[in-house]
Write a protein that binds this DNA or RNA. Sequence first.
DNA 1: GACTGCGTTTCGTCGAGCGCAACAACTCGT
DNA 2: ACGAGTTGTTGCGCTCGACGAAACGCAGTC
Lengths: 274, 274
Amino acid sequence: MGKADDTLIDTPADTLADDVPATTGQGVQSVDRALGILEVLARIGEAGVTEIAGELGVHKSTAFRLVATLEAHRLVEQTTDRGRYRLGVGILRLAGATTARLDLVQEARPICRQLAADTGETVNVAVLSESSALYLDQVAGSSALQPHNWVGQHIPLHATSNGKVLLSGLDDAALDAVLGKLAPYTPQTITRRAPLREELARVRTQGYALAVDELEVGLAAVAAPIRNAHGDVVASMSVSGPSFRMPQDRLDAAVALVVAAAVEVSHRLGWGHR
Amino acid sequence: MGKADDTLIDTPADTLADDVPATTGQGVQSVDRALGILEVLARIGEAGVTEIAGELGVHKSTAFRLVATLEAHRLVEQTTDRGRYRLGVGILRLAGATTARLDLVQEARPICRQLAADTGETVNVAVLSESSALYLDQVAGSSALQPHNWVGQHIPLHATSNGKVLLSGLDDAALDAVLGKLAPYTPQTITRRAPLREELARVRTQGYALAVDELEVGLAAVAAPIRNAHGDVVASMSVSGPSFRMPQDRLDAAVALVVAAAVEVSHRLGWGHR
DNA sequence: GACTGCGTTTCGTCGAGCGCAACAACTCGT
DNA sequence: ACGAGTTGTTGCGCTCGACGAAACGCAGTC
C-alpha cells in the first residue's frame, strides 16, 4: 500500500537520471563529449583545455579537438588567443531560434510588450522545466536599466510568483516529485510544505500569485497562469519590480493587468474555445 | 589531386564567413555534423530525420544517431513520439549561462574604442530609460577638447541621434507611451509628432539616425541600433562632434563606421542576420 | 490490403577520432 | 635572469567507434 508511488516509474525512463555529470555515455561518443563540454562551461563559466579534459575524463588533445570544432561553430570562444574557453555567441543565436519557434513566446511577446508599457515594470514568461522555473522571455519595463536577464535561468519554484503559479497547476503527486528541499532565501521565504500547499490553493482560487521579498529582499512580483487548449497551466507570466516602486495600489493594478494579459495569451493558445 | 591549394589552410580564419551553410568540414567530423543539425533546425525550425540527413548530405541512420545524442542532452526534442525534431530547452539553459556574463557595456567597449580611434570623435552607448535616453558609456575621440561626460545623463529622445534610434525600435503604442511634449532646444529640433514619425520611419529603413544642430547648435551626431538575439533594438551607439568638424564626407564615413560597429556589437549579443 | 512514406534498429566494415608524446609559449619562484 | 612547471597546440600511428546499407515497425493513403 505504501508503495503506491511506484507509478512514477512509468516515466519514459530516460527523462531523468544523469542530468549533470558531463557525458551521458550513450549515443555518438564524440558528440556526447562535445556537448558535455558545453555543459561544463555552462556550469563553470570559463575553463582551460586541461581543466575540461579532466572534467570529462579524456585526454587533453581530445578535449582540444572537440573545443576547436565547437569554436568553428561559434558555440565557444576563447577569451584571448591561447587562453581559456567560454560559451560563445552561437549559443545565443540558437537560443533566439529556439524561442522564435515556440509559439508560446511568439504569441505572448506583443502582449508582454503592452503589459510592460502599461505597468512600467519588467515582464517575464516562464515554464516548468526539470524541477525549476525556466524563464523563456523577458521584456524590460520603461524604467529600463535591464535589471537582470533571467532568460534561460533556472529559478526556485517556491520563492517566486511564477514558480507558485506553475506549481499550482500540478496535482499532489507531481508536486512531491518536483519539490525538493525548500531553501530559504529571505526571512519571508516559505520553507515548509504545509503553508506552501495552502498558498498554492489560494493561488488556484484567486487566479494569481504574489511574491514579495521571498526570493530577494526588495523584490516584488505578481504572476498569472497561461493555459493551453486543454486548460492545463503551461506557463506563467509575471510583472516584477522593486518593492519601493510597488505600493499596494500599484500592486493591485498590476494584478488585474497581468491576469488579463495571461488570459489573452491563453485565448491565443486555444483556451476557452468550445 | 589538387596539390597547390593547400595554402588555403593558412587563412587567418578569424573573420570567416558567418553564414556556415551546414558543416564546416574541419574539426571532429561527427561533432561538426551534429552542430550542423542544430544550425539546420535553427534555420528551418522543425525537421524530420530524413530531411536533416538530406540537408547534411549524410545517411538517414547517421543523422538519426546524431539527433538521438543531441536529444539525450536536451538540445533537441521531438514534437511527438516518432515525430519531427526541433530545438529544445537545453539550448536555453546554455544561453542562460552565457547571458549571465554578457554585459552590453563590456562587449561594446573594445568596439567603441576602435570606432573612436577610426573617427577621431566621441562615441556613446545609450539605452531607453524612463522616457529618455540614458547614456551608459562614452569613449572620447582623439581630438583634444573633451566634450562633457554624458554617462548617467538622461537626454531627450526626439532631439538626439541615439534617441531616434531607440524610438525607431518601438511600435506606435509604445511610442505614444514614451513621448511627452517635444520640447524645442534649437530651431532645428523636431517638435511635431508627424514629422518625427516620418523621421523614425526613415531611420528604420536606412538603419541609422542623424541629428545636426537639433539638441544644441553646432553639435552633430550619427547613431545606429544595437540588437539582441531577437532582433530587438536594445541600445544605440553614436558618434558625435562639433558640426564644423563634420562636413558631409566625414559624416558619410562616420555613418558607415558606426553602422558597422553597431552590427558587430549586435553579433556579440547573439544577433544573426534576417 | 498493398503501397509508400516515415522514424528506428541491427550489423559488419573501415576510416575517423583517439591517446600518446613532443612542441611552443607563458608564468612563476628563487 | 633563468629554468621548472605550467599552459594550449600539433603530428602520428593504432584501434575502436561511427558510418552506410539494408531490414524493421508503424503511420497514413490511394
